[in-house]
Design a protein around this nucleic acid. Sequence first.
RNA 1: GCACCCGUGGCGCAAUGGUAGCGCAAACGGCUUUUAACCGUUGGGUUGUAGGUUCGAAUCCUACCGGGUGCACCA
Length: 632
Amino acid sequence: MTTRLPEEIVPDNDQTRARAEHLAKIQALVGNAYPNKFERSRLTGGAEGEDTITSVVGAYRKHEPEVKEGGRPTPEQLEEANARLDGAVVRVSGRLATPPRVMGKAAFVHLSDGKERLQIYVRRQEAVAVSNDSLRPVEEEESGWKLFQLLDHGDFVGVEGKLFVTKTGEMSVHVGTIQFLSKALLPMPDKLHGISDPEIRQRQRYADLIASSLKVKTDEGDDDARHGLSTREVFELRSKLVTAMRRHLDDHGYIEVETPMLSPIASGAAARPFTTHHNALDIDLYLRIAPELYLKRLLVGGFERVYELNRNFRNEGISTRHNPEFTMLEFYTAYKDVNWMMDFCEEMLRHTIQTTTGSTTVRFEGQELDFGHRLERLSMKEAIARHLPPLFKEISEPFHISWLDDDLRVREMIALNDAHVIEEASLRSLMTMKIEHGMDEDEAVEEYLDAGKKIDIDKLWSEVRSSSSRLLGHDKSATPLLIQQLFEEFAEQHLFDPTFITDFPKAISPLSKASPDDPAVAERFELYVAGMEVANGFSELNDPAEQLERFEEQTRQREGGDEEAMQMDEDYVKALAYGMPPAAGIGIGIDRLTMLLTNRRSIRDVILFPHMRPRPTSEAQAEADEEQTSDS
RNA sequence: GCACCCGUGGCGCAAUGGUAGCGCAAACGGCUUUUAACCGUUGGGUUGUAGGUUCGAAUCCUACCGGGUGCACCA
């Protein structure tokens, strides 16, 4: 008798009790309920030559007779189909994908290998159970049938039998022997609805994956139908994407490298790092926020094309677009600049998306994303000008893009936007107050909207203008940050079609080269798709003296309180002093790209085990309850 | 960190202040080509936790736990 698992792991209810009882009876019938292996036949060349359900279905399903929806094949068709199957005997294994359908003296059930399903047919007098101790038939009348009665939805079995086609035209295995392989002590997810609770889907991804492969396909528009792909398919696609990207880079002369994830300095990006501690050395280490500076050291060392595809860690907020660890592909190419990199990135995306999805267009949130043509390239200032809200167009003087070159004007635009946001907020809180004091909600909302229309932009604008002297007093060097702020405020969310944003302010790009045409502009781009930043690339700064200055500037900002300003890395500057060839580099967010290709709007849906607050242990929970009771 | 929303048998959901219900799953019985199998019978709940308001709470209030979404931060 097996030990009963603790309640936290396997709750005690009618479902689990039935399964535990079945397990005990199975052990009495076939011995060891958890055998070490099951040898499968070798007719269709699945994994390592063995027959998987997927390979058997792939090889033989074509013999199923063609039948109209809901119809049945004719006796002639059946005879023909069975002749073509020629009594092929397969040994296959899988999970019971449905509860057994027992009909007196015969039964059907589907087995799943996670991807495909294959029906097995068990007859009372014929099926023989195989003992897991002796590997010989169990010496008992109707042993296979007895074993079958003890099977639950989700158990693993191996069967051997002839392939045939049933009356309804479905290819099935006519079971000769059946071997028990493993027990599902916990009930399977609902066969029709799967798991809808996002918490369980993400915390217990295994259950979500089971649900996604066992779910019965219906005509109803369910979750999968809306998204197009099941959970399993999302991660299959992700894997294909990563493989395609590796292959593309390998084919273009890149070598894959691995650089430290633990580092005494967290640099190469603007982000807050995780801290950890090395006991033997007694030093604090950081989890890397980007591999960038190590990869460029390799350019110094003589590798002309390198890439790394792995995790970065950033100690920041969690959202639908951010996970504390995320996968980034970074690669560097000697003797190339930012323009080459945009072309290469575009070509690489086109090619890998085509390979993984079969098309260069992607459906995301009901809209079409087209990677098949040359992607739009827009300077940051052009993007701001294009997506400027009406607020700025209504004011007395028509907006002109040259405003973005004027420090004072940029400040005024920020101030105007702030003033407007504050105005809106106060209206909103007024509305809330009115509702709290008993005003009809619809009425309050209407009043709020009316008031919103009446916000006097010209008045706000003149107020902003009159405080110009105060605005002028501000540090001019902050302007690039404000430009970026305007971009994020107005433009970013509207960049749905894949768009390269170019001409970043140099001051916010401490690792990239300045443009030969404009010393204030960096040769840098970011790729935006569906309002998300997906890639970030630039001509790599390789002048050690200038790099040192840029680091020093970052250090000043750090000391001024900017926790995310980049950390000085002296050894990196030293590497540059050995000479780094001109080069272009890029980082591509794999999670976000996967979101686009799988039509998922949350990053948690494309990461197998996204980070969540740990569940309190049962003792901790009891303690917390205890505390509450004693408090009150 | 802030705001809003959610938490009901194993799973998916219903019940808006008045007897906690339905489908799937489970148990038992019937059925030798079914497939969201079918037919009959049965069991299963301290409504996330703790407190409060009320004659009466799944429903209203407070706090806590967990989750989702949006904002902030960021890629």
